[in-house]
Design a protein around this nucleic acid. Sequence first.
DNA 1: GTAGATGCAAAACCTTTGCATTTTG
DNA 2: CAAAATGCAAAGGTTTTGCATCTAC
Lengths: 163, 163
Amino acid sequence: MTKPAAVQTVGGHAALDAFVVSQLEAALAASAMRVTAPRRTILQLIADRGGSHFCAADLLVDAKRRRLEVGRATVFRTLDLLLAAGLIERIDLPGGDHAYVACQPRRHHHHIVCTGCGRSTDIADAELRAMIDAIGRATGYVIDRHRLELYGRCPRCRTGASA
Amino acid sequence: MTKPAAVQTVGGHAALDAFVVSQLEAALAASAMRVTAPRRTILQLIADRGGSHFCAADLLVDAKRRRLEVGRATVFRTLDLLLAAGLIERIDLPGGDHAYVACQPRRHHHHIVCTGCGRSTDIADAELRAMIDAIGRATGYVIDRHRLELYGRCPRCRTGASA
DNA sequence: GTAGATGCAAAACCTTTGCATTTTG
DNA sequence: CAAAATGCAAAGGTTTTGCATCTAC
């Protein structure tokens, strides 16, 4: 049996906390995109989710609750933007719906999503690359993209709540 | 560096070919669900896709083209059924949309999806389990579910067409 | 004969788009 | 000031649902 080591978490939800504006400006300015109030608002809403996954509708609800003005269309457009910038990533929940999570920009990684609190942690696993190469050799495929998602219960949820 | 072996393909699209009806009857009868004409039709449509991924709309189109009668609602309902029975699985394409693929029933595995022809192959990789355990240990999560999807070009598409 | 399945069409959803107005750089 | 972004509302597409009818067991 192999001994898979080299597992390294690369940080998770803190990614958008204080950096919010700087990350945004860096990413957007670099692409000739403008830093606007609605975009700041949306980034803030995402940051305030504390790392839990969310979908467009969630943000709209949060915004409405906090009486922040953002249009539906703008939320969708901004999510696409953040996705392209690598500040958020699309994940697919076990149930079948999809959501987004804030994550380390521009670095390949995977996610563990807690089925308890919905928070996610980024994972960088060099091992995976080797395994994928082996699968490619075994099947004859040239594998050029992959996606790994893990679901479970985070330390906090295991000790805190029951179940 | 680890030497990931134990990669074993467990067969792919042939799963629904001849077995169609028997599989269906086995799975459905076991759940007090009925074997009906529309369900057979849908299974046939899936089988005839030759292993390529598809979505509900694709089947509707195929059905219309072949003048087979199936209602929209029935297609959706049957897909849910087959999903629950493990005869098909939901996958998520790189582009973001999701689709289904026929696969080995009731055995845990992963998919390689060819970005050329859309066909998929099932993969059983024992290695992955070890890696996931390691990630669990490293992060403190209790991982109870995972999803791995690989995308690339299959041997046929690499040799046949260019690009 | 009866529980379960079908089909239709309407409803519910989610996401995108057109366009006039506002804002950023 | 020009280009880009916003917001609204309407359009588009997909999946679900209610209900009367039909059918497998």
